[in-house]
Nucleic acid binder design. Structure first.
Length: 423
RNA sequence: GUGGAUGUAGUUCAAUGGUAGAGCACUGGAUUGUGGUUCCAGGCGUUGUGGGUUCAAGUCCCAUCAUCCACCCCA
């Protein structure tokens, strides 16, 4: 019936939900700070080349999911489909490497992909993520994972699993792709149509296929882990050792293939199987060529990103509570216009003293004002009528207990402040 | 991009092709100076939109848009 609706795949975060978002965002910021990451905000649109050159121009994201548009000068921009490329661009452009050898950055905000909406998937969705640029130490891989794990635990989630893999450096990956192509070629006719395409374009994806006949064939496919060179293998071993030191449980899943082209070596996912088809809570990995590709020094980086929607879904299925919804401290109930005048002055003063006050001038009867106070969840009611005005007193009522007392007008502010402080 | 299901009041849902209804929520009152319980009263909403079939369409058909779920992809 409404004339206008939110665009497909987008949605409004309404007051009944927004406090949950505040809560998870605050928790992520806190967690990032524990590990000394600092917040960065980048534009939500960028030169589309930034994504096309890094995410991979054969990936679905740039092939069909980007919101691209031209501005009045004909420049081609894209709404950011992910965060890493933008952060790295900002890192290079602002010379952040000069200040420190390594940069530890986190971000949060909306991302955009022209996808078919489904559970846990939207066209405008909200991600949080971190990037650690400049270090090649596998300890950092472990610490990045630890941060993600810490965050999920802090939220109270329990039903997730960490899966790790190494997809090797560029050289290992090449050898491995070749090996896969050799292996799967002999089964070409038995693979599904999609996998036949994947065989030429991106053979690793066959390992991920959900078609049963493909899975059967994939069981005996060569493992990436056998194709890692000495460095990559050592790093992967070191990562596992660090995770064990940190007592973070994980599972090696050599079928993790991150979708974005820039990933190398460490790849990991936090998966929650109660979420439905879109079950990746957090995904991340190391990206070695990315910084150079965007015009920076030959540095390495590692990071992850997670979707807030899926986080909220997981919290819902695990029945985890949030910090309470915002409610007013006080509701002002007035009877008569004279009382209202005095009340307005008191409210002004209360708000200047950090007391939140609600008042509805459209409600006249005291009964209806009390009802509204109750519904708003106010802790106290301030009741002011003609009688009190004459006595220069006001009534303060505790809504939970129903107990009320009169106080002199000139002491009410401090009385309320004391009562709120002790409640 | 593909497939399936679904679109009726703010919301959750009813209505053998024949005058569009209920619960919850909301507003007012009972209580003209006191909330939560209770009772009473208050509902035209282009039945998502546009066509078509029919004497007659919320109901059947087509298209379109949207939602949900899955494929795909990914956070």
């Amino acid at each position: 019936m409404p004339k206008y609706k939110a665009p497909r795949g987008t949605y409004d975060i309404l007051p009944g939900e927004s406090y949950k978002w505040q809560y998870v965002r605050a928790l992520f910021r806190q967690t990032a700070r524990l590990f000394n990451y600092r917040e960065i905000e980048t534009p939500i649109f960028e030169d589309s080349n930034i994504f096309e050159r890094t995410v991979g121009d054969t990936s679905d994201i740039v092939e069909k999911e980007m919101y691209k548009f031209q501005d009045k000068k004909g420049r081609i921009f894209a709404l950011r489909p992910e965060g890493t490329a933008s952060v790295v661009r900002a890192y290079i452009e602002n010379g952040l490497h000069v200040k420190n050898n390594t940069s530890k950055l986190f971000y949060l905000g909306p991302m955009f992909r022209y996808d078919r909406p489904q559970k846990g998937r939207h066209r405008q969705f909200y991600q949080y993520g971190i990037e650690n640029i400049g270090s090649v130490s596998p300890y950092i891989d472990a610490e990045v994972i630890a941060l993600a794990d810490h965050f999920l635990k802090k939220l109270g989630l329990e039903n997730y699993q960490l899966q790790i893999n190494s997809i090797g450096c560029e050289n290992c990956a090449k050898d491995y792709d070749k090996a896969l192509q050799e292996y799967f070629s002999s089964y070409r006719g038995e693979l599904c149509a999609d996998c036949q395409k994947r065989l030429d374009k991106n053979p690793k994806r066959i390992l991920d296929c959900k078609v049963k006949s493909c899975q059967k064939i994939a069981v005996d496919a060569p493992s990436m882990l056998d194709y890692l060179d000495n460095d990559c293998a050592a790093n992967f071993q070191a990562l596992q050792a660090h995770l064990e030191e940190m007592e973070i449980s994980f599972k090696i899943n050599h079928r993790i293939v991150r979708g974005l082209d820039y990933y190398t070596q460490t790849a990991f996912e936090f998966v929650d199987n109660n979420l439905g088809a879109q079950n990746t809570l957090i995904g991340g990995g190391r990206y070695d060529g990315l910084i150079k590709k965007l015009g920076g020094k030959d540095q390495s980086g590692i990071g992850f990103a997670g979707g807030f929607e899926r986080l909220l879904l997981a919290m819902k299925t695990e029945k985890i509570g949030f910090a309470t919804e915002d409610i007013p401290d006080l509701y002002f109930v007035n009877i008569g216009s004279k009382a209202q005048k005095t009340g307005i002055k008191i409210m002004q003063e209360l708000r200047q003293n950090d007391v939140s006050v609600e008042f509805d001038p459209d409600r006249t009867s005291i009964s209806s004002q009390m009802k509204a106070a109750n519904r708003a969840g106010a802790k106290f009611c301030l009741i002011l009528g003609e009688d009190e005005l004459v006595k220069k007193r006001v009534i303060l009522k505790d809504m939970a207990s129903g107990v009320q007392h009169e106080y002199p007008l000139d002491s009410i502010i401090s009385e309320i402040r004391n009562r709120l402080a002790s409640s």
